[in-house]
Simulated scan of single mutants.
Amino acid sequence: MKRITICAATILISTYVQAQSLNLNHVRRDFNKGVKNEDLCEKYYKTLEKEADTPIEKGYEAAFHMFMAKHTSNPLKKMSYFNGGKKLLEKQITNNPNNVELRFIRLCIQYYVPSYLGYSSKVEEDKTFVMNNLYKMPDEDTKDIIYNYLKGAKMYNEDELALLGR
């Protein structure tokens, strides 16, 4: 009987751990929902904080870190979340300046963040970089997610969208 209980517990724990593992495609798909949905944001924030290894994963970790600022009423926590995420994202971009996905993440955040936070100096640079380099991404699914997000965000005019979507 004891063996069955241990076996069942092991299966439950391993199922839980697998369910919590990082799925970057889900993170990408839900990226724009993290600002609005506190539960989703907290889920990704915690998962990414534990499991993010690659620069892109750390970029999304930074984004969800900043999104957490939206879901707290404490002004000090808001600034801590935002500044911590900003620092992490900037570090990833400094180390990987030609990574389209990292520049996309920063573009989206800087485009929508309130101007009083003073984090918008790279909007035009990132917008141009993403427009001129998205087509070079080898992963078609990721490219489609980014393109569709940007198309819906109305950051680009029709001519720019044509270049973005090539």
Rank of each mutant, 00 (worst) to 15 (best):
K86Y: 03
I11S: 00
N25R: 12
I109R: 08
Y112D: 13
N74D: 15
P75M: 09
N32L: 15
Y60A: 01
K46F: 07
V123H: 06
K46W: 06
V27I: 12
E38N: 10
K86S: 09
Y135L: 07
F67E: 14
L161T: 06
A63F: 15
A19R: 10
P75Y: 12
V130Q: 02
L164H: 04
N96P: 07
E42Q: 11
S121A: 12
N157A: 03
N133S: 11
N132T: 06
T5V: 13
N132C: 06
Y44I: 06
M137P: 03
E38S: 14
K91N: 10
V123D: 05
L117T: 13
G152S: 01
H65V: 07
T128D: 11
Y135Q: 13
S14G: 04
V130F: 08
I145G: 04
K143L: 12
E124G: 04
C41S: 13
E42R: 13
I93C: 05
K58S: 02
Y135R: 15
S120V: 04
G152I: 10
G84P: 01
F82V: 09
G85C: 07
R29G: 06
M68W: 05
E124V: 13
E160T: 04
I4F: 00
I56C: 03
R103G: 08
N133K: 03
Y135C: 06
L12W: 00
L164S: 03
G34A: 03
V130M: 08
I105R: 07
G59H: 04
N98W: 03
E42A: 07
T142R: 13
D126G: 07
Y16I: 13
L40R: 05
Y112P: 01
V17C: 05
E158Y: 04
K50Y: 09
C41I: 04
V35W: 15
Y81A: 02
Y81E: 00
K78I: 08
P114A: 07
I93T: 13
F31H: 08
V100E: 01
E57N: 02
N133H: 15
P138R: 14
N25H: 12
A62E: 07
S121G: 12
P138G: 14
A8P: 00
E124N: 11
T142F: 13
L163V: 06
S120P: 02
I145E: 05
S14H: 00
K78T: 09
P97H: 05
P97S: 12
K77V: 02
Y60H: 10
S21D: 15
H65T: 15
I145C: 05
N148G: 10
Y111G: 06
N96M: 06
L150D: 08
Y116G: 05
T15K: 06
I11Y: 00
M137H: 03
